[in-house]
Simulated assay, not measured.
Amino acid sequence: MPVRVAESSAPSQVSGAHSEESSPPICSLLTVGQAFSGTQNVSNLQKEEAWRVNVRIQGCDLEHGYLCGTMEALNVPMADTPVVTFWEGEIVDAKNYTFYTGKWEATPEDDIRHWTKFPSFAPLLSRVEADGGKSLDLSNYPYIFMRWKEQYFVNVGTDCGLTIAGFYYVCFSCSDGSINGFYYDPNSRYFFACNSFLTYYCPFQKLELKCANEGRSGFSFSSYELQ
């Protein structure tokens, strides 16, 4: 059973910790309109299962560490149509946000457990354990770390029997635009995270995406109105 660590000593949002030079690297693959496709592994002890997933970025503001978009799961069991959610993201830049979440019922221990699943995080671990990464300069780092929090369902109601209670720890590669993520749900902390749509448990559910429309061609989404 994990030991809860006080969150107040490591806030996720900081003000004035660094100059503008510490902002994440400008990446042509992390822009409004960019689409990604791949899978979300939701296998559990009973069966192997993966959902096909599409993501599109709807907004991106690197200066303030913000982005948002839609996520579409295409083959969700018991769903008659693809399930679409709207999410908002925090970019870990040591200026607006650090590696410690400080909300959504995630403890620093939960944060470290999930971030260390990414091999690209290993060189940063000691600094993050010291101060949440507030002293890091990530401006030239070849990966961008983020948190994605689904806010609401776009095309189904809240009575659909699905849940979006948790959030994703995300690692974005600036070189090829690939995305890896791990889901965390506070309602299943002691099961090391359950998946984002259904309530059965699976450890460290993984999201794997690749750029689907580099150059803005050859890929399209269904149309949805966000309200």
Rank of each mutant, 00 (worst) to 15 (best):
residue 88 E to A: 13
residue 86 F to V: 09
residue 75 N to E: 07
residue 53 V to C: 07
residue 69 G to M: 01
residue 74 L to I: 11
residue 49 E to D: 06
residue 35 A to L: 14
residue 90 E to C: 11
residue 56 R to K: 15
residue 89 G to I: 06
residue 77 P to I: 10
residue 68 C to M: 08
residue 70 T to Q: 04
residue 84 V to P: 01
residue 80 D to N: 13
residue 67 L to S: 06
residue 47 K to Q: 12
residue 29 L to V: 05
residue 81 T to E: 12
residue 57 I to V: 15
residue 46 Q to Y: 11
residue 78 M to I: 12
residue 39 T to W: 07
residue 29 L to S: 05
residue 34 Q to A: 13
residue 42 V to Q: 00
residue 38 G to E: 02
residue 46 Q to T: 13
residue 89 G to P: 02
residue 45 L to V: 13
residue 50 A to F: 10
residue 29 L to D: 03
residue 63 E to H: 09
residue 46 Q to F: 14
residue 85 T to P: 03
residue 56 R to V: 05
residue 66 Y to I: 10
residue 57 I to P: 03
residue 36 F to S: 00
residue 85 T to V: 15
residue 45 L to C: 09
residue 80 D to Y: 10
residue 77 P to K: 13
residue 35 A to E: 06
residue 62 L to A: 11
residue 60 C to S: 14
residue 63 E to F: 08
residue 69 G to A: 01
residue 54 N to L: 09
residue 56 R to S: 01
residue 38 G to M: 07
residue 35 A to W: 03
residue 41 N to W: 06
residue 76 V to K: 00
residue 68 C to V: 03
residue 78 M to P: 03
residue 82 P to M: 11
residue 68 C to K: 06
residue 30 L to R: 00
residue 62 L to Y: 05
residue 54 N to H: 11
residue 34 Q to P: 03
residue 85 T to Y: 02
residue 45 L to P: 00
residue 72 E to Y: 01
residue 40 Q to C: 09
residue 29 L to W: 02
residue 32 V to G: 10
residue 32 V to W: 08
residue 70 T to E: 02
residue 29 L to Q: 08
residue 29 L to A: 09
residue 74 L to G: 06
residue 47 K to A: 15
residue 67 L to C: 10
residue 66 Y to F: 14
residue 88 E to F: 03
residue 72 E to M: 06
residue 70 T to K: 02
residue 71 M to S: 14
residue 70 T to A: 04
residue 63 E to D: 10
residue 74 L to D: 05
residue 55 V to Q: 08
residue 41 N to D: 15
residue 47 K to L: 14
residue 78 M to H: 12
residue 80 D to S: 15
residue 43 S to D: 03
residue 92 V to N: 00
residue 72 E to A: 03
residue 93 D to K: 02
residue 59 G to H: 11
residue 93 D to A: 06
residue 77 P to A: 14
residue 76 V to L: 04
residue 54 N to P: 00
residue 81 T to H: 14
residue 37 S to M: 09
residue 59 G to S: 13
